[in-house]
């Protein structure tokens, strides 16, 4: 099975250096394959260069596709990160 979920960027300044680093570090803790899609760009969620290229600003919608044994935990962890606005505010 593969999980797919739309997540909206809530923090004021979007996914820039610090949030991107946090996201990649979090994603890297899981075995599952993590892909992020924005419009027609698909990037590896464990690659900081990829995540930065999304240039996701506040309000942007990202589609996360997570596939692997720990996909549930991975999705939870990532959702929490967005929910908590990357602990920025």
């Amino acid at each position: 099975m593969m999980l797919e979920k739309e997540i909206t960027v809530k923090n004021k300044l979007g996914i820039h250096a610090r949030p991107a680093a946090l996201l990649v570090k979090n994603a890297g803790q899981f075995q599952s394959k993590i892909e992020i899609k924005r419009d027609d760009i698909i990037v590896d969620g464990k690659s900081i260069m990829g995540v930065m290229m999304l240039a996701a600003e506040q309000g942007a919608t990202l589609v996360f596709s997570i596939d692997g044994e720990d996909e549930l935990q991975a999705m939870d962890a990532i959702e929490k990160l967005f929910e908590e606005r990357f602990y920025e505010e």
């Binding site: 250096a17 610090r18 991107a20 680093a21 990649v24 570090k25 590896d44 464990k46 690659s47 900081i48 260069m49 990829g50």
Partner: peptide, 10 residues
């Protein structure tokens, strides 16, 4: 962020 980019797996 630079260190992460340096070891970027992709």
């Amino acid at each position: 962020a630079q260190i992460l980019a340096l070891e970027d797996k992709s």
